[in-house]
Design a protein around this nucleic acid. Structure first.
Lengths: 290, 290
DNA sequence: GTTCCGCATGAATCGATAG
DNA sequence: ACTATCGATTCATGCGGAA
């Protein structure tokens, strides 16, 4: 099989998206700048303007997505004047009027959430992963994300080796973790719509601590090798790296040149594997023979 | 301190609520019948009619709640024609127009979600716990729900005994579980807005999907001893039992006489403790000297 | 007293069948 | 065509009986 095509693009996604072909993308996974966050990109959208800002982009995404494709939107409303703002709810309603189907809402449980203390709320440890589709029938490869489970938890309490412990850490509902490869041959079950994953604290370059295992999970679930993945808010390129490792083609767009250059550099590193990258790679799939 | 007053009431909450005094309740915790569910109660509300059905009730709840009080609403939208229905989103927007503040959304991660397999979705393992308030300043006693953690969570990885394993199972982010008593004296941290709890599938006397630890957690967080708790959809009385064990006064309303009689009977059991009840009590607080 | 194993039980969802 | 009912699918949990 050929090397996947990974194509980072520089520019405002509202314009760059227009250059993409109709119905050419199998999966869109993205984490757009949250309202009033990342003011250096897209000018820090005010919560009250968020829906109006995002809808034209959603329309373009609808155009480039294949009928059988899926759009995964990672988002969370921020607190404004002591309340959760409603722009995410309104966005869902507006996108449905635009023609999207709101198929599902996954929960990303951030096991290591941002620390802090407030008098009237606890730490926010979850984000929404909204699944939108163009039609009821879409491609989904559930077997690709199955996790070992069953009554395993009870039976194995006695002899608990180190590897088993690590298995348990990563088990927790969705099967992320470092030793997935060790589970081959065990009894597997399907995951749920709650994903347990830690944020990546290592990457301090990128403001959004989007762990690579997150796009990787959806890429495995909704695409096959050779399919096309799109991230219109590429950032540091997490989605693109996940796509490359899983042998999917990918397009990423970002408005900031620093991100664009950074992603290009990291992709070169990927094609010349180094130790640090090799460690990260283990998290998803064992190295494949070429 | 006196025995708490626990008052189950029989009738349609749309009428019974009118008999309660203005601003007399410190906390409302309830899990209303979901759309198209529980057809024996309130006739199984159609998803499209859900907001219109609930809004008048929400108005009465707003009237009886103290200005510093909190309303916790447990709800989850069902799938209709392959999509998540939007009535919960619309309900939040409508309640805000009614004057409620949408302060927070907690996630209840149901560790034992309903099984099943479908071509285009996974099992649903979470529900919403919507927090509404009348004003930005409300009573919140965060220390009452602190969870033992600290670096103990890391040490546990090395020497993992069976008991530690069980502790870990129940710890999982929010400190529910049966071994809370064992944690006395450990370093404590505040929980997050993600609650990990199993549904109570087979409770001997009462089959309640709503685990008692759930209302108990919010009762500890938002009330003090002697405060008043209200559950307008009492069901099998889970909220009332939790309130009694935590020495809060409580009012519960249900439209079905069988539930009403069942709750009255279970409350009598509570006041004459038996072994099984004593075990359950341990989950929340150690027995108190009278 | 423990631990272990078998079993019933869910705020589910889809697709097919029937009115 | 649109709604109502039914069977098939699936798994974490806790109980009870057994070793």
């Amino acid at each position: 099989m050929n090397e996947p095509i990974i194509r980072p693009l520089l520019g405002d996604c509202r314009e760059v998206l227009r250059t993409l072909d109709d119905e050419s993308i199998d999966l869109i996974v993205t984490s757009p700048p949250y309202a009033d966050q990342r003011k250096n990109t897209y000018g820090g959208i005010h919560p009250d303007d968020y829906v109006a800002w995002f809808l034209p982009i959603a329309a373009e995404l609808q155009r480039v997505l294949k009928p059988t494709g899926t759009f995964i939107l990672n988002i969370k409303e921020r607190v404004v004047k002591g309340e959760r703002h409603t722009y995410v709810l309104e966005l869902i309603l507006a996108m449905r009027r635009q023609g999207w189907l709101w198929t599902e809402e996954f929960i990303w449980h951030k096991k290591n959430s941002y620390p802090g203390k407030w008098p009237n709320r606890f730490r926010d440890a979850w984000e929404r992963l909204l699944q939108f589709n163009k039609q009821r029938q879409f491609h989904m490869y559930q077997e690709a994300v199955m996790v070992p489970m069953g009554d395993w938890a009870r039976k194995r309490l006695k002899n608990l080796s180190d590897t088993d412990k690590i298995r348990d850490e990563s088990r927790a509902g969705s099967g992320f973790g470092k030793r997935v490869a060790n589970w081959v041959g065990r009894e597997k079950v399907y995951p749920t719509n709650v994903l347990h994953m830690a944020t990546e604290t290592r990457n301090r370059n990128h403001s959004a601590a989007f762990p690579e295992a997150l796009p990787a999970w959806f890429i495995k679930l909704f695409t096959q090798e050779g399919d096309w993945v799109l991230d219109p808010f590429m950032g540091s390129g997490t989605t693109l790296r996940a796509a490359y490792r899983l042998r999917r083609n990918a397009i990423g767009i970002d408005i900031m040149e620093t991100y664009y250059e950074q992603v290009k550099a990291s992709l070169k590193d990927l094609q010349t594997p180094q130790l640090s990258l090799f460690e990260a790679q283990e998290a998803y799939e064992p190295p494949r023979p070429e």
